[in-house]
Design a protein around this nucleic acid. Sequence first.
DNA 1: TGCTGATACCTTACGGCATAAAGAGTTGCT
DNA 2: AGCAACTCTTTATGCCGTAAGGTATCAGCA
Lengths: 261, 261
Amino acid sequence: MTVYAGQGDAHRSLALLWGRPDEPPTGRGGRTGRSGPKPGLSTDTIVSAGIAVADAEGMAALSMRAVGERLGRTAMALYTYVPGKAELLDLMHDRVLAELPARPAPSDHWRDAVTAWAEELSACYLRHPWVLQVSQARPVLGPAELAAMEHLLSALRPAGLAPERLRGAVAALWQYVRGMAATTADARGAAAATGVADEEWWHTRSARLAELAPDFAQRFPLLTALQSAGGGGAPEESGREAFRSGLAVLLDGIAASSATA
Amino acid sequence: MTVYAGQGDAHRSLALLWGRPDEPPTGRGGRTGRSGPKPGLSTDTIVSAGIAVADAEGMAALSMRAVGERLGRTAMALYTYVPGKAELLDLMHDRVLAELPARPAPSDHWRDAVTAWAEELSACYLRHPWVLQVSQARPVLGPAELAAMEHLLSALRPAGLAPERLRGAVAALWQYVRGMAATTADARGAAAATGVADEEWWHTRSARLAELAPDFAQRFPLLTALQSAGGGGAPEESGREAFRSGLAVLLDGIAASSATA
DNA sequence: TGCTGATACCTTACGGCATAAAGAGTTGCT
DNA sequence: AGCAACTCTTTATGCCGTAAGGTATCAGCA
C-alpha cells in the first residue's frame, strides 16, 4: 500500500529548482547578511544524500533523520537548506530526471527515437524506483522534467501530429512508461523483500486462487484463455517484451494519427 | 510526495477477498469454537469505514485509529477482523473496483465499448482517488479487479488482437487510465487543499517560472509552441478532451494492430 | 445455577515519524 | 570588543502501526 501526502510548497521548490547554483541558500532565517559559521552542507549535498538513502533503502526509509545521519548531522540541520521533506522530494525527483540525455540521438525514424526515449525514461525510473511514488500532478516543473518533455516532443516532431493529438500522445506515452516501470519496480521490490522470485510467486498465487475460486475458468474465460496463450518466453525477457508490445500499440496509434493530421 | 510500503500479507488478503461471506472471520486467536461475546463489527463494516475515511479525509488520514473511531471502537479492535492495515487496504481496493459494471453494455463497435470501460474506470478512480496510491504490482487479484480485466478483454474481443498484442493493449489502456486519473485527482486535491483553482495555479506558476527562467522559450521551444497552440477551451472541459485525445491514440493503435493480426 | 473457556474489545507501551521552539556555538563586520 | 547573522543541536509535541496483556461478555455444560 501507499500513503500519500501533498506536494511541497510549490513556490519554494521552484525557487530551489531554478535558482542559480551560486545564489546562497535561504536558511530558516532568510539570509540577509553574510556573517556566521561557514555552511557545512548545501542543498545539493542533501539532495544527493536523500537520493542515496532512497536508492538504498527505499522510499519508506527516507526520513529526515536518515538523510541527516548520512551526512553526519541531525535531522534538524537539514531545515537550514531545505524547507521540508516534501520540497526535498521535489528536488530529488528533478535531480534524477537530469540523468536523462538532453537531446535525442539522431535516428532515421521517429519510432526509433520515441522508443529510445521510452526506454531511457523507463531505465531511469527503474534505477530509482522511489521516484514513481512522487506525485505527478501539479508537477513542480523542474528543469530536468521539462527537458525530458522537450526531448520527447522533439522525437515526435517528424510524426507531424496536430497539437491536440500531440498532447494526447505525450500523455499516453508518459503514463505508459511510468505505469509499466512502477509495475516492474514493485515486482522487483516484492521479490527482494520476500525472497520469492516472481515466477514462483505467481505460481503459488495461482494455486491458492484456484483453491479459493474453483469456478475461476468459468467466471473469467477470456482471462484464462489469455493466460494460457503464447508468452512462453524466459521470465526476465518477458518483461521487456511486454513493454515493447504495449509501446507498439502506442506507436501504431501515433502513426495513424500522423496520417490523419 | 508519496510514501510507500509493501503490500499486505498476500495469503491472508486473498482469503479475505475470496472467502465466502458466511464464513466466520478469523480473529487473532484463530476461532475454534463459537462462544464468547457477539461480534459488534465485521470485516465488511471495517472495510466500508476505511473507504469512508479515505474518501473524506484522504489516504494520509487513513489510520487504524481513525477507522476505529468512526465505528466507535479503538484501533486495536479492528485487529480482530483484519490482520493489519496493509490487508485492509487490499480489501478496500477491491471493494471500490466492485463499483464497476460487471459486463460491458452491448455496443456496435469495440471502440465505444472500450471508451466506456475507460471512462467508467476513470470515474471510479476519481470517486476514490486514494485507490491510485495503492500499489499495482503483484496485484492481490481480488474478484473485482479480475472482473474489470475480464470486462476489458470482452470489450476488446471484436478487435481480434493476437495474444501478445492484446496483453500490450490491456497494459497500455490500464496504465493510461490510471495515470490520467492520478493526474486529475492530484490536481483536484491540490485545488481543494490550497483553495486555489487549477487555472489560477497554472497562471501564477507560469509567471513565477518566467521570472526564474527568462530563457524558457529558447530552452524549450517545442514546449512553448505546444503551450500556445490551440486548446483554448473551457478549463473543466479541457480535462475530458485531453483524456479523449490520448485514448484516441491508443484506440487507433489497437485498430492498426487489429488489421495486422 | 454457577463454572469454564473462548472471544471481543480495551489500555498501555514502544519505537518510529516531521517539525516547532529555543538555545548553543561560530563567524564576519563594524 | 561587541554584536548580529548564521549553523546546528536539543528538546518536545502529537501523530503513526501494532505487540502485549488485561477485562468483560457470552455459550454450553455440570
